[in-house]
Amino acid sequence: MPDEITLRPVTADDLDVFEREFSGPEGVGPYQWFGFRSLVDLRRRFAETGLLGPEAGVLTVAEAGRTVGRVEWFAGTWGRPATSTCWSLAIGLVPAARGRGIGTQAQRLLAEYLFDHTRAERLQAWTDCANLAEQRSLENAGFVREGVLRSAQWRGGQWHDQVIFSMLRAERPGGEPRR
């Protein structure tokens, strides 16, 4: 079982960890490697907004105070944005933090945070059909498997099917919606 897992705003030191751990295929793993990307944009967005904005955000995942990853959310829609927007979630853990339940706890904490601090009715996340560990993590965090999105993600020179999961406000961790 992992030590205490917390989410907190990203710091400049966290950016160094993210760059070191997530800039190559070894760090992000086989299901999140989309090729090399400029790291300048992340630092620019951090300088402008602290990576917390009305349309997206990033929080650091910490285990006993030590940075072990990040969680992110961004707006997704299933119709007109004014009436059909929900949050899509993503997670990245450093390799040493994987397989110990940290991802489950971090995704549960992010769901609680978003339901507490936004008007979201629906949260969603997806992962590669072959990523059984993340599928278990999402289910253990309280997300419900909805189905398969066929050929939804281009990665590694080919299209990959994704499994989509959701959590509704009434299904939030801890039971009933807070009033």
Rank of each mutant, 00 (worst) to 15 (best):
T104S: 14
H117M: 03
V144M: 07
G101Y: 03
S88Q: 14
G99R: 10
D116I: 02
Y113F: 15
V148N: 13
G101L: 05
I91N: 08
R145K: 15
G99E: 09
L109S: 09
I91K: 01
T127H: 04
R145H: 12
S137F: 09
S88V: 13
L123N: 02
R136S: 15
L114G: 10
Y113K: 07
A97I: 06
S137Y: 07
D128F: 06
C129L: 15
G99F: 10
E146Y: 01
Y113E: 14
Q107R: 11
G99H: 08
S137Q: 07
D128Q: 03
L149R: 11
S88C: 12
A130M: 02
R145P: 08
L93C: 04
V144C: 09
F115A: 02
L89F: 07
T104G: 07
L110V: 01
P95K: 09
A120N: 04
G147L: 10
G101Q: 03
L123H: 02
H117L: 12
R119T: 13
N131E: 11
E121W: 13
A111N: 07
E134D: 14
R150T: 09
A120H: 05
W126F: 12
L123D: 02
A133S: 12
L138Q: 08
F115H: 02
V94N: 07
L109C: 05
R119P: 05
V94H: 04
A141E: 04
L123T: 03
A133K: 11
L138R: 09
A111R: 01
R100D: 01
W126S: 13
E146D: 14
L138W: 06
G99W: 03
D128N: 13
G99Q: 05
L93Q: 10
E112M: 08
C129H: 06
F143L: 13
R122H: 10
H117D: 11
A106V: 02
L114W: 09
E134G: 00
E121P: 00
A111M: 10
R98V: 00
E112Y: 00
H117R: 14
W87V: 00
Q124A: 15
E121C: 01
F115V: 03
Q124E: 15
A120I: 06
P95H: 09
A97S: 06
A120T: 09
H117E: 12
A90R: 13
E112Q: 13
I91G: 08
L149F: 06
A96F: 04
Q105T: 15
V94L: 05
E139L: 07
A90F: 00
I102T: 15
C129D: 09
V148H: 08
S88I: 14
L132F: 08
A133Q: 12
D116W: 00
Y113L: 13
I91P: 01
L132Y: 02
R150N: 06
G147D: 09
D116V: 01
A97Q: 07
T104M: 00
A133R: 14
D128S: 10
W126Q: 06
L149Q: 15
A106I: 00
Q135L: 04
W87E: 01
H117P: 01
P95G: 12
N140Y: 04
A106F: 00
W126C: 12
E139P: 04
G92Q: 15
F143G: 05
S88F: 03
A130H: 11
A130I: 00
V94F: 05
W126N: 11
N131T: 04
